[in-house]
């Protein structure tokens, strides 16, 4: 598998990644977890090193799936996840308040079975929180070793 670098960051990943959302969210009822774990392992066998999920996919179950599947491959693959959308009474709500991001990161680390999140995105911009503040929180998380990029 060919690899590519994401911008000037130094983060190298397979030229094609694997978007995992559809296995449990958005494209019909979730598929059997065991089958999806085998599929993720088949992707690794074929050279994929870049896996995409988010806290809100499920919510939570997609991160749990990805975490369980990639547990044996810690440090050998890049996992991207996202904060900034919370479920409230069954509806998606944009929330990038610093305290919410801090809660989200702990939950994602836990579900993904990792010590560090390789790539952490803001899922959608929260109009109520200045982007500088959001970037500052992520910067702190990087300093604390909870996030790499």
């Amino acid at each position: 598998m060919k690899t590519r670098q994401l911008g000037k960051s130094g983060l190298k990943v397979s030229a094609i990644g694997f978007g995992c959302m559809g296995m449990s969210h958005g494209y019909g009822p979730a598929s059997d977890k065991k089958e999806m774990i085998s599929l993720i392992h088949a992707a690794i066998d074929r050279g994929i090193t870049f896996f995409d999920t988010a806290e809100v996919y499920g919510p939570y179950v997609n991160e749990e799936l990805v975490g369980e599947a990639l547990k044996p491959f810690k440090g050998k693959v890049v996992i991207a996840t996202k904060f900034g959308i919370q479920m409230e009474n069954g509806k998606q709500v944009l929330d990038s308040k610093p305290e919410t991001i801090r809660q989200s990161v702990e939950g994602s680390l836990n579900r993904l079975n990792v010590d560090t999140i390789d790539l952490y995105y803001q899922h959608r911009v929260d109009p109520n929180v200045p982007i500088e503040e959001v970037a500052g929180v992520v910067q702190d998380l990087i300093k604390e070793g909870k996030v790499k990029h």
């Binding site: 590519r4 994401l6 094609i16 694997f18 978007g19 089958e35 599929l39």
Partner: peptide, 10 residues
């Protein structure tokens, strides 16, 4: 060269 698509499938 710095684009990495993430198709999904089951």
């Amino acid at each position: 060269s710095w684009i990495v698509p993430i198709p999904g499938t089951r």
